[in-house]
Design a protein around this nucleic acid. Structure first.
Length: 156
DNA sequence: GCCAACGTTGGC
DNA sequence: GCCAACGTTGGC
């Protein structure tokens, strides 16, 4: 099993929205970055995911989700009406994939990005590296466990 | 609202 | 294949 972190702007799709979707979860559409897509193709059902809220005050991890369905073609890339339409993608050779993600549990408190940045044990995380803009990224097992530990002590 | 960082596009 | 221009992300 692997660990991941996925970012969402709560104005677009929040952790509350995911919880409301229940066991079936929700399709994680709209990823248009090759590196993020490649990570999604490595995801397996049951992999654990930190759910991160970006463009909020403060940004941070709000809880845990899990992969409910492996990668498959993103239907929004074929829809000319959709913001994520990609004219260069074909059904024969789709460029973009989605996975399904479902709610697992909420942290008692949001764990803010500043706490993660301040922690030397997390210096090598994708998330805390300067200039990182990936919306989907892997998390190492030791980082995962360290963050879980932090989440029990955060007061954000 | 600003801007640094980064990915993509397209002219050459 | 280089690289300038442009668009986007996302913290602050």
């Amino acid at each position: 099993m692997q660990y991941w972190l996925m970012k969402s702007e709560p104005d677009e799709f929040s952790f509350d929205d995911l919880e409301a979707k229940g066991k079936k979860g929700e399709m994680w559409d709209g990823v248009r970055n090759y590196q993020a897509r490649n990570f999604m193709r490595d995801m397996r059902v049951g992999d654990q995911v930190f759910f991160y809220h970006s463009n909020t005050t403060p940004p941070g991890i709000v809880g845990i989700a899990e992969i409910a369905k492996m990668a498959y073609p993103d239907p929004t890339q074929f829809d000319p009406e959709d913001d994520h339409f990609d004219a260069k993608s074909t059904t024969d050779n789709p460029r973009w994939d989605v996975v399904d993600v479902r709610f697992v549990r909420r942290f008692a408190h949001k764990l803010p990005l500043s706490d993660l940045k301040d922690d030397a044990a997390l210096d090598d995380m994708y998330l805390t590296r300067k200039g990182n803009r990936l919306s989907v990224m892997p998390v190492e097992k030791d980082e995962w466990e360290h963050i879980l530990d932090l989440s029990e002590h955060a007061d954000g």
